[in-house]
């Protein structure tokens, strides 16, 4: 269990970590520092090629860092690999399976490799996993014959055959259907409640929002945002909300132009770089308005709707999603990078 003698408050402590592949290449991971508390889910998000998998590979001992230090369970990773590896589980981004074995036999072999010597204990554990992950119906099917989603479920499930304190999940829900995905996320949540720490990478922001206690966003090898999901929304969502207006009839162009004028009037009061207000029209029945103070403009919008004789079928006001925040953070990083290199 975590926090045994000699271990500090953090399950993972990463300090000034860098990784370069080859002399002439840029840093894949460039001076990142973060801590992960015990019993939490740490989301590590970023676009493709941002450095997520390289970081996971360093933390799971597959790669050696170019510089920087990593402590896991309070122990230096490079010096205590075998001790640390006994207490972690890893679900890699790529599939991994024993081709010729059935699901049940593969789980049994995995249990043996984790040194669960007692056959009965292994059997009980396998049955528990088969039930929890709804794998009972495919237990006699060879891994080679499974669908991608089924294989993925087995890959995640097998990690729970041994006692672990830290689980690395590198895009674990790729290929899973919605119900299998929810089953997995809920199971992880329950395990976290029992003390498990999870390092989680994903491209699906709803998952990150649902599961993570803290989120770091990495881009071009650097961590560019780090907070709780709600903290990120506060910081980078600028309090924006989305108003979605659904009409019975398709609104005309003039109405949309008037609406844009209302929003643009508010924009003109702000610093141009701060302005995030936006009117979107899908060309059919729905108009979306993104603004940091929709309450203030909503009466003007409704008056305009009334004046144009339009009938509203539905109106909804939503806080910014993590996806919007993610895009805002990445775009801002691209913008500032471009500014740096521009003459």
């Amino acid at each position: 269990m975590p926090n045994i003698d000699g271990e500090d408050d953090y399950c993972i402590s990463v300090s000034n970590l860098r990784k370069k592949y080859g002399k002439n290449n840029p840093y894949a991971v460039n001076d990142i520092t973060f801590d992960v508390k015990y019993g939490t889910v740490f989301g590590f998000l970023g676009p493709n090629g941002a450095g997520k998998t390289t970081t996971v590979k360093i933390l799971t001992t597959l790669l050696k860092p170019t510089s920087g230090t990593v402590h896991i369970f309070g122990r230096q990773l490079l010096k205590n690999q075998s001790e640390i590896k006994k207490r972690i589980g890893v679900v890699s981004q790529n599939p991994s399976f024993e081709t010729n074995l059935t699901v049940e036999k593969a789980l049994d072999l995995y249990g043996i490799l984790w040194r669960i010597r007692d056959k009965q204990i292994r059997k009980n554990k396998i049955n528990e996993i088969l039930n929890t992950f709804d794998l009972g119906s495919i237990k006699s099917v060879k891994n080679d014959e499974l669908s991608i989603g089924q294989r993925r479920r087995v890959q995640v499930a097998r990690e729970f055959i041994h006692e672990l304190d830290l689980l690395f999940l590198d895009e674990p829900t790729v290929g899973l259907d919605p119900s299998a995905r929810r089953l997995l996320l809920d199971y992880i949540k329950s395990q976290v409640k029992s003390g498990l720490t999870v390092f989680f990478t994903t491209h699906i922001m709803e998952e990150a929002e649902y599961l993570c206690d803290q989120i770091a966003i990495i881009d071009k090898g650097k961590i560019i945002a780090f907070d709780t999901p709600s903290g990120l929304k506060q910081k980078y969502g600028k309090g924006n909300k989305t108003v979605e207006l659904t009409f019975n009839d398709v609104p005309d162009k003039l109405f949309i132009d008037h609406l844009r004028n209302i929003v643009n009037m508010r924009r003109s009061y702000k610093d141009a770089t701060e302005a995030t207000s936006h009117v979107g029209f899908n060309g059919v029945h729905t108009v979306t308005i993104i603004d940091d103070n929709v309450e203030q403009i909503i009466s003007e919008v409704l008056q305009l709707v009334y004046k144009n004789g339009l009938q509203l079928e539905n109106i909804s006001i939503n806080p910014p999603s993590l996806e919007e925040v993610f895009l805002a953070v990445i775009n801002k990083n691209d913008y500032s990078k471009d500014s740096e290199v521009s003459p």
Binding site: V90, N94, E98, L113
Partner: peptide, 18 residues
């Protein structure tokens, strides 16, 4: 061939094997 292709080499190396 299978370990390389099916990801088992990587999986064994993140377990307690070198």
């Amino acid at each position: 061939w299978n370990d390389k292709r099916n990801g088992m080499l990587q999986q064994l190396l993140v377990m307690q094997f070198s």
